[in-house]
Amino acid sequence: MTTTTTQEPAVRAPARPEDARRSWWGDVGLVMARELRPVVREPFSVVFGLVQPLVFLALFGPLLAGSVGTDLPAGSVWQWFVPGIIVMTTLFGTSTTGSNLQYEMQSGAHERLLVTPLSRSSQLVGRSLKEMAPLVAQALLVVVVMLPFGFRPDPVGTVLGLALLAVLGVGLGSLSYALAIAVRRQEWMFWAVQQTVLFPVLILSGLLLPLESGPRWMQVAAQVNPLRWVVEAERALFAGDLTASVVLWGLVAAAATAVLGLLVGVRTLLRSTD
């Protein structure tokens, strides 16, 4: 005698209204708010990030004025030097953000975030967009600090320059997160790669010293360094030369860095969670 059993179809839980209303940009906003919360609670971290650039301004600026100040393309040493230091602040600040993600991976916070309904790509984009707020705040503080010393930035150029820095910071932050995910728990590897890449890019940007008097090979290498064009664009913008060709090239370099960083970062995150 054969008995037949009928299997009732699985009943799915009804979709919650908040799930239906969620969008990708909404997920990005949630992640961005989550990442900004510690910064808002402890704003001293933003101020503490200014120690290094202020040391450069206080100690390297006078040396620069005394040695090559008369040969600088901009008449004032501060008009030439301060925009470069602001870019350096962005470079140092965003290139180290991957260490925070490494800490979350070690503590398990990153895995808990991955099991939420938030899309993977929105998690990385939200983290990267968070970098805009502290770096713009730090750049404004540098400008304010240097005003009594004769630094006179163009108001419109300053706003455009800060927007350009925000775009660059998104790309650099994304690449830093991608590196942290790639090396995972090998913290030493993250810092080894970060330091190995950071200083050649920094020197070849003409940020600290004019490259016009350097060897030919260094000038050629600087031409393919995206940070070089961002530095030149920032100097032109802060000087009020808004229509200079280097401004366009700086925008292209910053946008390309942002697009590349987001693509690499999202791809690395998706592959790590497959």
Rank of each mutant, 00 (worst) to 15 (best):
residue 272 S to L: 07
residue 37 R to I: 04
residue 267 R to Y: 13
residue 16 R to L: 15
residue 171 G to M: 05
residue 44 F to Q: 10
residue 252 V to C: 06
residue 122 S to T: 08
residue 108 G to L: 01
residue 214 G to T: 15
residue 24 W to C: 07
residue 205 S to M: 09
residue 162 L to N: 04
residue 77 V to C: 04
residue 219 Q to G: 01
residue 18 E to Q: 11
residue 232 E to F: 06
residue 99 S to A: 13
residue 232 E to C: 03
residue 209 L to M: 13
residue 120 R to M: 06
residue 270 L to Q: 15
residue 34 R to Y: 11
residue 156 V to L: 12
residue 70 T to L: 11
residue 261 G to P: 02
residue 61 G to W: 06
residue 246 V to A: 11
residue 40 V to Y: 14
residue 30 L to Y: 09
residue 69 G to I: 04
residue 1 M to P: 10
residue 150 G to W: 03
residue 143 V to R: 01
residue 8 E to I: 15
residue 176 S to K: 06
residue 141 L to T: 02
residue 218 M to A: 15
residue 163 A to F: 09
residue 77 V to Y: 09
residue 95 S to T: 11
residue 163 A to D: 05
residue 119 S to M: 08
residue 192 A to T: 14
residue 27 D to R: 01
residue 204 L to K: 04
residue 196 T to C: 12
residue 105 M to P: 02
residue 229 W to Y: 11
residue 226 P to F: 05
residue 89 T to Q: 15
residue 91 L to D: 07
residue 157 G to Q: 00
residue 214 G to L: 15
residue 123 Q to F: 10
residue 112 R to H: 13
residue 144 V to F: 14
residue 253 A to Y: 00
residue 87 V to A: 15
residue 53 P to N: 07
residue 171 G to P: 01
residue 144 V to H: 08
residue 2 T to L: 14
residue 147 L to R: 11
residue 202 L to R: 02
residue 133 A to L: 15
residue 62 P to H: 04
residue 98 G to Q: 05
residue 231 V to H: 07
residue 173 G to C: 02
residue 155 P to R: 01
residue 184 R to D: 10
residue 109 A to I: 11
residue 267 R to I: 09
residue 71 D to N: 08
residue 41 R to A: 12
residue 14 P to D: 14
residue 165 L to G: 09
residue 252 V to R: 03
residue 227 L to G: 05
residue 158 T to W: 10
residue 248 L to I: 12
residue 185 R to C: 08
residue 108 G to T: 00
residue 189 M to K: 04
residue 261 G to W: 03
residue 148 P to W: 00
residue 180 A to D: 03
residue 218 M to S: 11
residue 93 G to E: 12
residue 152 R to Q: 09
residue 198 L to G: 03
residue 64 L to H: 00
residue 138 Q to E: 12
residue 48 F to M: 13
residue 126 G to V: 00
residue 190 F to G: 02
residue 261 G to Y: 02
residue 164 L to N: 02
residue 224 V to N: 02
residue 120 R to S: 09
residue 233 A to D: 06
residue 242 L to N: 06
residue 149 F to I: 04
residue 259 V to R: 00
residue 260 L to W: 07
residue 223 Q to G: 14
residue 154 D to M: 04
residue 147 L to D: 04
residue 88 M to I: 13
residue 118 L to S: 07
residue 145 V to N: 05
residue 181 I to S: 02
residue 144 V to Y: 10
residue 268 T to R: 08
residue 15 A to G: 07
residue 120 R to A: 10
